[in-house]
């Protein structure tokens, strides 16, 4: 199953990079989402996959054996939430940008001011 997951990560990165390289800003934002998802998965996978044994303690509070690693999960959880912030902000920025310039083309963002 690791191989399949690795393929998934690879294809998510491929899609993300491909989208980032597009001129359309909307596609660019979608690319960001793919890449952040791919990275989350990569971090999550790096501590090894454990099935059906979430990082809980026993009902009396003693630690259980062989649970999944809680540390990666905590990291990834933070990353997912931050990713939401990034996407929401870039979307708003994109919206404003389009309102002002009426274009979706990144190539027209070349200059900061009139030359």
């Amino acid at each position: 199953m690791e191989i399949l997951l690795a393929i998934l990560i690879g294809s998510l990165y491929t899609a993300g990079v491909y989208m980032l390289l597009r001129r359309s800003i909307l596609k660019f934002i979608i690319g960001i989402i793919f890449i952040s998802n791919a990275t989350n998965l990569l971090v999550f996978m790096s501590s090894g996959l454990v099935k059906g044994n979430p990082p809980f303690t026993a009902p009396d509070g003693t630690p259980l054996e062989q649970t999944a690693d809680p540390l990666n999960q905590a990291l990834v959880l933070t990353a997912i939430v931050i990713g939401l912030g990034v996407v929401a902000y870039t979307l708003a920025l994109k919206y404003k940008f389009f309102e002002l310039t009426k274009t979706d083309d990144l190539d027209e963002l070349k200059q900061t001011e009139e030359v």
Binding site: Y13, A15, G16, Y18, L41
Partner: peptide, 22 residues
């Protein structure tokens, strides 16, 4: 662009596989 994306994606996939070995 697709070629570049594939080159990057492939190496990241391999990295993921390697990560499970660490």
């Amino acid at each position: 662009d697709l070629a570049i994306a594939l080159i990057f994606g492939t190496v990241m996939g391999l990295l993921a596989l390697k990560a499970t070995e660490v």
